[in-house]
Design a protein around this nucleic acid. Structure first.
Lengths: 205, 205
DNA sequence: GTGTACCGATACGGTCGAGTACCGGTACAC
DNA sequence: GTGTACCGGTACTCGACCGTATCGGTACAC
């Protein structure tokens, strides 16, 4: 936020005549997110990030006013849409692809979600950034798939399972480490979609 | 752990000739869990707990060696089985009861789970205590219901949705705050069970 | 070549909380 | 009544980390 200027689509920091290249900025962001995944939000220190990227603490504080703002910037810059673009022609096919993709990045993203744990309960800005980076783009993409399926007549528009598809998929991703001690992998996610999501939508596997 | 003796089924602290009654101990545990829910594990201080229960920090450190061990003891003492005892005669009835019960305590327990966030990634003892207190008893009770249903012939023993029922229910509980901004309530949970869990098991609502 | 402005390094002030030590008071045992 | 052992209160040590200040070095502009 502090690093975003309203003067064009160029990268954030370049507009402040900083010598930090976008690639260098990416290194900072990757480093802080990695450390969050490893040690949790509270345990991450600006000194640790500075050390691991071989820059000085001053540099980080010059670009971002505080630790929360730094992390928020890192999250915003990591916004991704991994489900967008999936369109196999059938809902079952789409959801299998979603399951595979979700299983691929489950370890990294679920861990990040978990490691930010109580931090997002305390910091509304952080929570918003997390939702916009990791959750909303994917939910939107899922809803778009479901809309297409309804349009094609694969699923009745009033099927009550429709609204729960995102919760089913993200919920299982999130909870599996706690239930079974390991992150959800692509095979597991495909089995889950075929065993639970598709039948609830009235689609035979 | 430090407060558990192997000399009988009596309460932990009494065996150490402490003047802390079990009721008083319960106050300590409730206080620390409440503060965790409110501020997160890292932000909870022994001083804060002592102040809110009008005891001294010394007392807490006399009974429990450190903050992690204190929290672990509080979790162990809060072990509950809210699903055990549900037996309506049909799986659909059982799962509706489960949904209602889960919706009731969802706010408190989901919040606790979230607030312990990254702490359980760092402290294996804490993670174990949390699983044993909040997760395993309920999962066991669920599995027992499903076993009875299979025995009654309501569900085919090889139905692939069987193994995913706990993940579906706990997953949705856990993820809803992030997706929709509010905890799952009993009505929502019942709708979810009827729209997704029962159909996947081949049971018409 | 000179100025400017950012870089890395380091040192510093301030805050906060874990865990310890010590104190006087008091309840209970015998 | 005397001893023992725990209680609450407070003061303390110690370490960690946020955020600031300062300084010499250096790349780029012109």
């Amino acid at each position: 936020m502090a690093s975003q200027a309203a003067d064009g689509p160029e990268t954030a920091v370049a507009s402040r005549r900083s010598k930090i290249t976008p690639e260098r900025e990416r290194e900072f962001f990757d480093a802080v997110l990695d450390q969050i995944r490893e040690s949790g939000y509270e345990a991450v220190t600006m000194e640790g990030v500075a050390a691991s990227t071989r820059c000085s603490k001053s540099t980080l504080y010059r670009q971002w006013r505080s630790k929360p703002q730094f992390v928020v910037a890192a999250l915003r810059a990591s916004r991704r849409t991994r489900f967008a673009g999936i369109d196999t022609g059938s809902l079952a096919g789409d959801l299998r692809q979603v399951a595979r993709a979700a299983g691929e990045w489950s370890g990294k993203d679920t861990r990040l979600l978990q490691a930010l744990g109580n931090a997002i309960l305390q910091d509304a800005e952080l929570k918003k950034a997390l939702r916009e980076a990791l959750v909303e783009p994917e939910v939107d993409a899922l809803r778009e798939m479901l809309r297409r399926a309804v349009e094609r007549g694969e699923v009745a528009p009033d099927n009550p399972a429709l609204e729960h598809v995102p919760a089913q998929i993200f919920g299982v991703l999130r909870i599996r480490p706690l239930l079974e001690g390991e992150y959800a992998d692509p095979d597991y996610m495909v089995r889950f979609v075929e065993a639970c999501v598709l039948p609830a939508l009235g689609l035979a596997p």
